[in-house]
Computed example of a mutant assay.
Amino acid sequence: MTTETLKKPVNISQSNELTEAAYYLPLQAKRVLWLCLMQCYPMKDDPDSVSPIFTVTVADYQKFFKVSVDTASTDVKKGVTALAGSSVVFYPKEGEFEEVKRPWLAEAGLKKGRGKWQIEFNYKVMPYLMGLTSQFTTYSLYDCGKINSVRVIRLYESLCQYRSSGVWITTQDWLSERFMLPESQRSNFAEMKRTFINPALKKINANTPLKAAMTQNDDGRLVFTILDSKS
C-alpha cells in the first residue's frame, strides 16, 4: 500500500466476525491494527486481492494520531510488540469448533533506518480481517479519534454494527467475555454499569456521530438504542 491510499477518506472496515471476537489490545496496538485495516478498506469487495503483509510507518501514525515523531516511534513499536504477543478468540457460526484462538501475527520486522514496520498477519486471521461473510462494520477513524480507551472503542464498534437497525440487544456475560472486562465488572453488573457502560456511552455520545443509551430488560438482557446523527 502507498501513502496515497492513506490520503483518501480514513474509513476502517472489518468483518463482523472480528467485531464480535474476544480480544484486548492496548491503545497503541489497536491503532496499529487500524492502520492495517485502513489499507484493507479499498479492497474489501475483493478480499482475495489483499496481501497478508502490511506496512505501518511512524509517519502515518504521527499524522493520524497527532503525536510527536518520538511518541509515534515508541507507540508503533509498543503496538507491534503487543500484537505479536497477543491472540484473538473467534466464535465460528459454522464448523466443528465453538471457539477458536489464534495469534494475530506471523511475523513483524522493522526496516533499518526507515521508521517502517512490515507486518504479516497469521494467514488464519486474514479472512476475519477482510470478512468471512458479506457483513462488515465500517466507520471513520475521524469519528472516534478522540477516544483513547480501547474498551470504549470496542463498544463503539459494536454499536456501529447495529446502527442501521437502531437496536442492539446483548448480555452482561457477552460484554464481559468479548471485551475481556476485569473481574470487578464481570461479577457485579452495577459496577460494570457505573465504571464502564455509563462512562463509555458518555464518551461515545460526546465524541462520535452516535447517540446511544442502555436499558435492561426484565430478563436481564441489555438493550442499547442507537441513533446515528450522520444518517
Rank of each mutant, 00 (worst) to 15 (best):
N148T: 15
T57A: 08
D60N: 11
R114V: 08
C160V: 08
S49Y: 09
C40H: 04
C160F: 05
W34K: 06
L83K: 02
K93P: 05
T81S: 10
F121P: 00
K124D: 11
C160S: 07
G95K: 02
L37C: 02
A72D: 00
G95T: 05
L33E: 04
P52S: 08
S68V: 10
D45A: 14
I153S: 06
W117V: 04
L35E: 00
K77R: 11
S86P: 06
P42Y: 03
F97R: 12
R114Y: 13
T81L: 07
S86D: 03
M126L: 15
P92H: 11
G85E: 06
T137N: 03
R163F: 09
M43S: 15
M126E: 12
C160N: 07
F136V: 14
A84Y: 10
M43V: 13
K101D: 11
G109S: 15
L141D: 05
K77S: 09
Q135R: 14
Y61E: 04
K66R: 15
D60V: 07
K116N: 13
V100G: 05
V76W: 00
L155R: 01
K124M: 13
K111F: 11
G131I: 02
Y123P: 12
A82Y: 04
F64N: 06
L155Q: 03
Y128D: 02
V50M: 04
L159R: 01
S87A: 10
S73W: 13
F65H: 03
S134Y: 11
E99M: 06
S140F: 10
F90G: 01
K66T: 15
K93R: 12
S86Y: 01
G85T: 07
P42Q: 08
R151I: 08
F65I: 06
Y41L: 07
F90M: 01
V100P: 06
L33K: 03
F136C: 08
D45K: 13
P103R: 03
Q118L: 14
E107V: 10
F64K: 04
A59D: 08
E96F: 10
L110T: 05
A106I: 09
V56C: 01
K111Y: 09
F136D: 13
T137S: 05
K116Q: 11
L110S: 12
S140Q: 12
F136L: 09
K77A: 10
S149V: 11
L141T: 08
T133P: 01
A84N: 11
W104A: 00
Y142V: 10
S49M: 13
V152I: 08
V80Y: 00
D46P: 09
I53L: 14
D46V: 13
G113H: 05
